[in-house]
Amino acid sequence: MPPRDQLRALLVAVVWGLNFPATAVALEHFPPLLMVALRFTLVAVPAVLLVPRPQVPLRWLLGVGLGIGLLQFVFLYLGMAAGMPSGLASLVLQASAPFTVLIAGIWLRERITRRQALGIAVAVLGLAVIAVHRAQVAALLPVLLTLCGALGWAFGNVCSRQARAPKPLHLTLWMSVVPPVPVLALSLLVEGPDRVVTALRTTATAAALPSVLGLLYIVLVATLLGYGLWNSLLSRHPAGLVAPFSMLVPVVGVLSSWLLLGEGVDRTELLAGLVVVAGVLVASRPPRRAPAGTPPPEPVVGTGAVVVGAPPSGYGR
């Protein structure tokens, strides 16, 4: 991955890390399912009116919308509403990175080098240290809900990789068409019409202003900018190279939640965060050029004929 794309991936990590305290603030006013519906409705309406439909097969558009749009955020917001701290949520959600590599290895037959596997293992170790250290602050259900969100994100990542959208921003905008109707129906069923109407009716009040600003950050910055860059990277690089950068998100998430919301952070979490950074850097380094005639390094993930850096089998189908 060239340095410019590495910087873009780092920018996505910062944007998404700040997304977690913004989400915590927004959830103080909006019920979680309603917030998912609002988030994507605010993107879907102008997308349908102003942006051409992305030139990708419908199955991959639906897959990205279902995974990244619906499953990830329904489970994440439910988990945070159930008591998951925003900093810890930013950590647990990054299980999407190993989930993505695993799904890509099985489904797309993408291979990963030993260096990349080592980097991912180091990053996962750092995440595990933070998770164990903070396990006492969250009940089991919020953690499980957030892990389900991570699995949905991974599924959407692989669908985005397969879509190979010529204009990734169009895919980012149009994936927002998938969640609003089913999630709004679910919100009315689970959260109830009274709660939904009350939240919408009081949106313009001073008390709701911080939550509205949090929602706008989520829509304009985390969704449009973040996923625009993310899908662009996935359209040009194998999922195994892009996904490890998402492990940097909890470092930003934990620190920003500490600074903005007063959530606790200590030396153990900071040191483990540095381990995560080191793992991502190792995983993202390009392999050394082998001398002429040297066999390629033996892959450690995947069983097919596709290597990291080459288009996956099935590209364009």
Rank of each mutant, 00 (worst) to 15 (best):
G240M: 04
W153N: 13
V300E: 09
G65T: 02
V301L: 12
L271V: 15
V306T: 15
L213R: 07
A150P: 01
M247E: 13
T205F: 09
L118V: 15
L233Q: 02
A206H: 04
R161H: 02
L151A: 14
L76I: 13
G67E: 06
G304A: 07
Y77K: 09
F40N: 07
G302K: 09
L271C: 10
L255W: 13
G253I: 12
A199D: 05
A138I: 09
T303N: 11
V143T: 15
Q6K: 12
S160P: 01
G240I: 00
T146F: 00
V25K: 05
P295C: 06
V25Q: 09
G87W: 00
G264A: 15
L220R: 02
L62Y: 03
Q94N: 10
L200E: 12
L91A: 06
Q94M: 10
I218D: 09
A208N: 08
R201D: 13
L241D: 15
S284T: 13
V43H: 02
A207Q: 15
R134V: 04
A47E: 02
E269K: 11
L189N: 11
A163K: 06
V276T: 09
T41H: 05
G83H: 09
D266I: 10
I120A: 08
L260F: 12
L260D: 09
V25R: 06
A24P: 05
L209Y: 07
P295M: 03
V252C: 09
R236N: 05
L49T: 03
L220I: 06
P238A: 08
E110M: 03
G192Q: 10
A117T: 05
P291R: 13
V101E: 07
T202K: 15
A283D: 07
L271T: 14
P296F: 08
R114G: 12
T205V: 07
T205M: 10
L34R: 01
T198G: 10
A123D: 06
G156L: 02
A26K: 01
A26T: 00
L220H: 03
A243G: 08
D266Y: 06
A185S: 11
E298Y: 01
P238W: 03
H133T: 10
V124C: 10
P85Y: 07
T172R: 01
W153A: 14
A222G: 00
G63V: 04
G69T: 06
S235R: 08
P179L: 03
A97S: 13
R164E: 11
V307F: 11
L220V: 08
E28L: 12
R288H: 11
A139H: 10
A89K: 04
V280M: 06
D266F: 02
Q162N: 05
Q6L: 12
L270K: 09
L147F: 04
P57R: 13
S257F: 03
L78E: 14
T303C: 08
Q6R: 14
L33Y: 00
G293I: 12
V306H: 03
L42G: 09
P297R: 12
L173K: 03
A22H: 01
G262I: 06
L93I: 15
G240V: 01
L270S: 06
I218Q: 15
V280H: 01
S160F: 00
S86C: 05
